[in-house]
Computed example of a mutant assay.
Amino acid sequence: MTDGSEKYWYNLKTGEVEKGFESPAPDRAGPFDTPEEAAKAPEVIRGRSKAWADEEAREDSWGTGSVSDDPGADQ
């Protein structure tokens, strides 16, 4: 296993892809195996954030019947 120094990272401040530990950890997203994957980090982050928000909304509304993503919920 590598320590990440040979991986690619997305710099959250500059929007650039970096190889290895060029920037401070709070400014990096990753690691990614390729520069192309690292360049898609904002899309990945948005997708995961939406999934987490949707999951929290389902959990918060559990038992209220206000959110129905489950096709069997009306049975």
Score class of each variant (00 low, 15 high):
30 G>R: 00
31 P>K: 09
57 A>Y: 02
9 W>K: 07
39 A>G: 08
20 G>F: 14
53 A>Y: 10
3 D>E: 10
44 V>D: 06
66 S>N: 09
24 P>R: 11
5 S>H: 14
62 W>Y: 15
14 T>A: 06
21 F>L: 11
3 D>M: 05
35 P>M: 11
30 G>I: 02
22 E>G: 09
26 P>A: 10
68 S>G: 02
46 R>M: 08
52 W>F: 15
72 G>M: 08
45 I>N: 06
16 E>F: 02
10 Y>A: 10
46 R>H: 09
48 R>C: 03
50 K>I: 10
6 E>N: 11
25 A>M: 15
17 V>E: 05
40 K>I: 04
42 P>F: 02
24 P>W: 06
9 W>V: 12
25 A>D: 15
28 R>G: 13
20 G>S: 09
39 A>S: 12
27 D>N: 14
10 Y>M: 14
43 E>N: 04
53 A>P: 00
44 V>R: 01
21 F>P: 02
75 Q>L: 10
22 E>M: 15
9 W>C: 11
21 F>Y: 15
42 P>T: 03
49 S>K: 03
1 M>F: 13
28 R>Y: 05
29 A>T: 08
71 P>T: 12
55 E>L: 07
68 S>T: 07
22 E>I: 15
32 F>H: 13
28 R>V: 06
10 Y>Q: 15
17 V>N: 00
32 F>T: 14
61 S>V: 00
43 E>Y: 11
51 A>G: 01
70 D>G: 09
42 P>Q: 04
36 E>R: 09
5 S>F: 14
75 Q>R: 12
45 I>E: 15
3 D>G: 07
14 T>Y: 11
53 A>E: 02
3 D>N: 11
46 R>V: 07
32 F>S: 10
3 D>V: 03
63 G>A: 01
57 A>I: 03
36 E>V: 15
51 A>Y: 04
55 E>C: 10
8 Y>I: 07
41 A>D: 06
15 G>H: 09
7 K>Q: 11
43 E>H: 07
21 F>Q: 08
64 T>N: 02
40 K>L: 13
9 W>R: 09
42 P>A: 07
69 D>R: 08
69 D>A: 12
71 P>D: 12
44 V>H: 09
15 G>E: 14
74 D>G: 08
7 K>L: 13
75 Q>M: 14
73 A>S: 10
32 F>N: 11
4 G>R: 00
64 T>P: 01
58 R>F: 02
19 K>Q: 15
65 G>A: 04
48 R>A: 13
20 G>P: 02
12 L>S: 09
41 A>P: 00
74 D>R: 07
43 E>P: 01
64 T>I: 01
36 E>P: 07
36 E>Q: 10
33 D>R: 03
8 Y>C: 10
24 P>N: 06
21 F>V: 09
21 F>G: 04
56 E>G: 03
68 S>M: 04
45 I>Q: 08
19 K>L: 14
64 T>E: 03
44 V>A: 08
22 E>W: 04
72 G>V: 11
4 G>A: 01
20 G>W: 14
50 K>G: 07
28 R>Q: 13
26 P>T: 12
42 P>S: 08
26 P>F: 04
56 E>C: 10
70 D>N: 15
10 Y>T: 13
52 W>G: 05
